[in-house]
Amino acid sequence: MGVVALSLGCSRGVRPDSAVAGTKPVSGKVYSNEAGERVTLIGLEPGDSHKALVAFDNTKSELDGQVLVASVNSERGKTHYWTQWRGRSQRFVSVENRGGYEDLIFSDVNHTGYTHLKPDTGKTGALKVEKIFERYQDLEGDKKYQGMLVFDRKFWANQAEVQLAEALAETNKACGSKLTSTVAWDSITDAQINDISFGSYCVGALESLQKLCARSDEAKRAVQEKLQTVECRMDAQQALKLEARKVIWSVTERDTVQPDAATTFFTDNL
């Protein structure tokens, strides 16, 4: 895990039903950046539990003040911390060894951006790992905290809509158009929302239109004159269709129309 061992005080007893029952905090490291964002990693023993605690402070996200229990796995010089949040398994934190120094990569809940943090020697030296352990135990008994762990369809749908709106604004800017976008939410099950980053899937058609408009004024005129809305939906097969002035962008749980194919479709049909 790349964390340093620290001396422990006496931690209070852990509830039998706790996610950290049978473990104890033995190591910790604080990572920070110039913006004051801070992520603390607490190693838990026994080591074969592959568990850690991850604390978030001043990250300007809804994770601020939270401590999450993580499953830890390592591969090719990277250590990944997988946590549950709003019913989905999330990798908010990874630590990479970059030839002699560590780089902690933090991504927010919607994974639209990444922040880099470095080991903070001063804060690590002052760290009391048992305090983070107790902070997690307190949160486990908090109803609001528990509510943030269960699946939230409305939240993930809103996240997808935000991503789609951002891509739509960029497309309209690039094309000089007034396109609208929609998601056929009735075609998407809870399990599918839980399984994939649906917003990332839906922006593909809009990103292809942006690239076309960047190439020529002719493409801009075609988008302005022939398109009105873009609809994203789940279907049995990935597909791209044009009906009247509507683009229908169908994705599956494992596949979506690739960028080159989308560009070819629009070039041939607009």
Rank of each mutant, 00 (worst) to 15 (best):
Q146D: 12
K154Q: 14
L164D: 01
T182Y: 13
F151I: 08
W156S: 10
D142E: 12
A157P: 02
V150E: 11
L164A: 05
A174N: 10
Y145V: 05
K144D: 14
G147L: 05
F155L: 08
F155E: 08
G176T: 07
A160E: 03
Q163H: 12
L149S: 07
K143D: 15
D152L: 03
A167H: 01
A157F: 06
F155G: 10
K144C: 07
A184Y: 10
W185A: 06
L149G: 08
S177C: 12
N172C: 04
T171D: 00
E140Q: 11
K143G: 13
V183K: 01
V150G: 05
C175L: 02
Q146S: 13
E161L: 05
A165P: 05
V162M: 11
W185T: 01
Q146N: 15
R153V: 08
A165F: 01
F151H: 11
V162K: 14
E170N: 13
A165H: 08
L149T: 03
W156I: 04
W185R: 07
T171Y: 01
L149V: 04
F155H: 15
A169V: 04
V150P: 10
G176M: 08
N172K: 03
K143M: 12
G141S: 11
W156K: 03
E166S: 11
F155T: 08
D186S: 14
K178M: 10
D152M: 00
F151E: 07
K144W: 10
C175K: 02
A160G: 09
N172P: 04
N172S: 09
A157Y: 02
L149N: 03
N172E: 03
A167L: 00
A157I: 08
A157Q: 15
A184I: 00
G176F: 09
A169T: 13
L149H: 02
S177E: 10
D152F: 00
N172A: 06
S181A: 14
S177M: 11
T180M: 09
E166N: 12
W185D: 07
K144V: 15
A174S: 13
L179N: 04
T171Q: 01
L179A: 06
V162D: 11
K173N: 12
T182W: 10
Q159V: 11
W156F: 10
E161C: 00
F151Y: 14
A160R: 03
D142G: 05
G147S: 05
A184E: 14
T180L: 10
N172Y: 01
A167Q: 04
L149Q: 07
F155A: 11
D142I: 12
S177L: 06
S181R: 11
N158E: 13
K178D: 15
A160P: 02
A174M: 05
A160Q: 02
K178S: 15
D152I: 00
L164T: 02
G141Q: 13
Q146V: 09
K154I: 10
S177F: 06
A169I: 01
A169C: 06
Q163A: 08
K144E: 15
